[in-house]
Amino acid sequence: MLESKSVTKMFGTLAAVDHISLSLEKGHVYAMLGPNGSGKTTWMKMAAGLIKPTSGQILFQGQPVNIESRKHIAYMSTEPYFYSWMTVKDVGKYYADFFDDFSYDSYLDLLRQMELTEEMKTSTLSSGMMAKLKIAVTIARDAQVYMLDEPFNGIDLLARDEMRRCILQYATEEKLLLVSSHLVEEMEAVADRAVFIQKGKLVENVDLEEMRTEMGVSMADRYRQIYGHTEE
């Protein structure tokens, strides 16, 4: 469904993403793992069509990502990105204005679940509430691909449980979910595949249950094996 063909992104002389070839299929929840600065965000932004690759390309259903693919790929960035004048309601209306697959009813539903109200101003939200708002407005879209960059950042334990439930609710056979997180444990049971990235390069794209059966290691263990002796 989403295919990365030898994608490279240079920032000056630094390769943020270095020849990543990767094929992601629908019906899976992928955990995208790697330390900060390993290239997860950059890759996602390229798949979202926000950043243009230096070389290589990312295909969505066989076509290079473009304006059309943005209609079907819902991307949530780590950083808050709403206009400062917006209320929670304005954010929903904005999405309703631009995304045909956005459902305001689902949005209201999610807001209730997350204890947010339409009147709240985005400029005064705590980081936890902002994280919830971002995920609510993103998954209120009935997209084919959801790319969530660090959805667990800045939120407490209980909210993380809620967030996991939300992610699972939307993980159907028809959809592809890609969730990056450096809170590896949070994704352990939610993801069924893991994509490990290191210094802009793909390390592996594995089936987690297979890995547990064959190697007897958890995703977190594997993370430590891969990154333990290099960074972090």
Binding site: G49, L50, I67
Partner: peptide, 9 residues
Amino acid sequence: QSYMLFMTP
């Protein structure tokens, strides 16, 4: 805030 604008189709 660029994402807000450029993520729209």
